[in-house]
Amino acid sequence: MSKIAFTYFLKVVLLVLAQAVIFNNLVLFGMAVPLVFVYAIISMPITWPTNLSVTIGFLLGLTVDIFSNTYGVNALSCTVLAFARKPIFHLYVQRDDDLAGLKPSQRSMGSAAFLKYMLTMTVAYCALALTVDSLAVFSFWRILLQIITSSIFTSALIYALDSIFTRQHEKGL
């Protein structure tokens, strides 16, 4: 348990730093924002209690907010996403057995199920965060376009990241 928690913590720190230093600057066509740190919530061990996941979500969002001057946008969105994580996961994975310590990934869930779960989470997050962020500023169509492009960009990056993390894990075994 503690080893899982420690590697998870390390992953979160890396993701937040990467988001702040690299991904926040990687905006495609002034539209598509890669919100890659969401992978931290997506890959959180599924058996962790909701209290813990919501707390982690809030702190994660708040940290990203501080780094990108968005003041509450990501804190709110991450909290909601962390809360909705389990129900979304169980949309695609019915079995409730042998989930102990399971971290959602391509390896543990299979590519198809992981892809569906990850896409749902990413689209939900992009829709929430981008709408909250640009409330009262932009037109509906611009927000919609931004949500679609950002979701595609983010999920592609997360899928790639997950492949890397999973492969490293296999090497370690």
């Binding site: 707390t55 979500g57 809030f58 969002g61 509450g72 804190a75 909601v80």
Partner: peptide, 9 residues
């Protein structure tokens, strides 16, 4: 947490 976020927001 939602209330805290909204206060900031």
């Amino acid at each position: 947490y939602v209330v805290l976020s909204c206060v900031l927001l």
